[in-house]
Design a protein around this nucleic acid. Structure first.
Lengths: 124, 124
DNA sequence: TGTACACTTGAACAACTGTTCACATATCTT
DNA sequence: AAGATATGTGAACAGTTGTTCAAGTGTACA
């Protein structure tokens, strides 16, 4: 499983310039748990193999071995990555006999992918 | 610098179920370089510390030591993370004397953050 | 000039990651 | 039933990550 480190104590001894701004942001800051889950989700998207899988499933519902064939990697590697994506509810699947058909779990994933694409394509 | 592994040979010996679908997706697949850059960007968002920095800068332009104060981590740690975000053009800064004021580099970052938030808040 | 401050950087470390390999499970076919 | 196929899983490995620490810039102010 993807793991991610975190911390947010309230004791802090670093000097500051403008405490008003810092406090205003602190009030708005999302709960530690939310930040953690969000980081885990982005980390899942932060690997080319998983990103290709996401992209592929964005276009077509596919089974494990077609994904493996498409990306030229072992079905084992695909299965490991799909488990990570499944646990984070980024993909879902349904079984037809021995074949597992995977697809994206919700429409946000596609949006995130596209916004990210705009960012990287704009910057070079 | 954030690094990310990648590969996309055209030789592949995995069995397949539906080659038509796989080929259709392959035609649409983004270039290796694009996927790689996108993965790097998402990986940068895949860490709670950097995510908190992004969130903070989404609300306010801030200097390094105010970010450190706000998140209760060393200015060194913040500076290291800001360099990663800077290199990926996720944040920019301007200097006023010895103080460096950081802010988000473009509007896509906020969009990505919000879409991600919708995903994680919807799923539990 | 010297001291303090704001920030940056390089090296080093433990912790985490993605892949491979070997094996396990489950389902279909003959 | 046996064998082939599709997928899942645990262990192990090299490679990568984020933090800390120590030392470095450059700017401000007395």
């Amino acid at each position: 499983m993807l793991k991610v480190k975190s911390r947010m104590d309230d004791v802090c001894e670093v000097h500051f310039i403008d405490e008003r701004k810092a406090k205003a942001v602190k009030r708005l800051m999302k709960p530690e748990r939310t930040i953690y889950n969000l980081a885990e989700t982005f980390a899942a998207l932060g690997d080319p193999t998983r990103l290709k899988i996401i992209f592929a499933l964005f276009k077509e519902e596919l089974c494990v071995c077609d994904i493996a064939h498409l990306l030229c990697i072992s079905t084992s590697a695909v299965s490991h990555q799909l488990r990570i994506l499944r646990n984070l509810r980024l993909v879902k699947y349904h079984k037809a006999g021995r074949i597992a058909y995977y697809s994206l779990d919700d429409e946000h994933i596609g949006q995130i992918f596209n916004e990210g694409l705009k960012h990287v394509e704009e910057k070079r």
